[in-house]
Amino acid sequence: MSQLPVTESDLHGYVDGVLPEARRAEVEAYLAGHPEESERVVAYRRQNEALRARYAPVLEEPVPQRLAARVERRQPVLRYAAIVAWVTLGGVAGWHLHGLQAERRTEATAWPHRAAIAHVVYSPEVRHPVEVGADQEKHLVNWLSKRLGAPLRIPHLGDLGYALVGGRLLPDERGPAAQFMYQDARGQRLTLYVRVNPEDSRETAFRFAQERNVGVFYWIDRKLGYALSGEIGKDELLRVATAVYRQLNP
């Protein structure tokens, strides 16, 4: 047999099944006379099989919403529609809710208003209330902390009957904000809006704003501003807001 010597590359080509027919036969003949090399080739083939078997299930997993939505969200028409919806809802909400549309909102009252709008927009959502669900809480908090540039914590309100649904990223006046959603056994939803405060904000006690049906307790705590919104009684909302505050300031 006049043939090229079998190289390391040939062995890998054999393992991966990419050799031309004639060369494959030559490598097989070589392996028959070299048991150690043959053993190696068998082991490498098993590695290929093991890797494919191990990671095949990933292909069957549903693509997480944040990845699937990623591409969709980029479509300009959709984005435009979303902005229109946002502005329209904001306008309608502001106009309807308070009758105070003529009043100039300062930033100190504008951001709880945005939190209320975000509550009105997302809390009725059936299919897509959140971007990342409570089942991926660790990821959720990492992701939003990364986006806001501040370490966030997610309060747990199970003792008060509210379970975490998940959260999403929202645009605030000067950058990203986070919204966490909770719901009780009856499907009543609360949202906690978190944003990074401008430099000059001072800490505040709880403040309350009523925007039509939506009550908002909001406060500033160091770097972050929190607004808890819900369509529940003021007393109950205060109870939850107090629990949130306590958990964030143990």
Binding site: L51, R54, Y55, A56, V58, L59, E61, V63, P64, R66, L67, A68, R70, V71, E72, R74, Q75, Q136, K138, H139, N142, W143
Partner: peptide
């Protein structure tokens, strides 16, 4: 976009094997 989207499952598979962790893998895909 449709073309890119078709590849997401395989990108996830590769990223999972590469990072060894689900969240890190999906962050990488994202």
């Amino acid at each position: 976009e449709r073309l890119i989207e078709q590849h997401i499952p395989r990108l996830r598979r590769y990223a999972r094997a590469l990072t060894g962790e689900r969240e890190a893998a999906d962050d990488l895909v994202q």
